[in-house]
Amino acid sequence: MSSAVCFPSVDWFERLANAMRKEVERFQELGTTDCTMVVKVDLGALGTRIYEIGFEGFEITEIRELSSLEQAKASHFVVEGSLEAWREMIENIRRNGAPDLEHTLNYLTLPDVPLRVSGPDQLEIDAFYRYNETIQRFFNGAAGIATRYERVAI
């Protein structure tokens, strides 16, 4: 029986948050982070799954699943893409311990494909750039998470 955690899920992001807590000193080196990131995963015919992750100071303050973007905090940015794009990024991190040159969040989002950053206004989108190293390190925690990818209907 596998102990792999399903992506996307609250559990999976909780594992990332736990990984962050375990190496809090490394995150403190990067400085405080105050933003809300929404991760949107397109599951094709099965719709989308949306997760809100709150960063405050050196901690993750909240992880929750949303039924629509309207439920997100007013101040947030969205990183969205297909399950396949997320899967490729996560598997690349798992293989290398960190993303290679072509799988960093910035690399994947700059041309708006395969991932895309959006938000209610430009300053919210800019928060993705402002805290990019922290957000990247947060996702790098995926290196230690056995992950399975199931297309679970909502």
Partner: peptide, 13 residues
Amino acid sequence: FRLCMQDEARHVA
């Protein structure tokens, strides 16, 4: 570039 990007976004803000 990632580190510089973060600084620059603060200045823009």
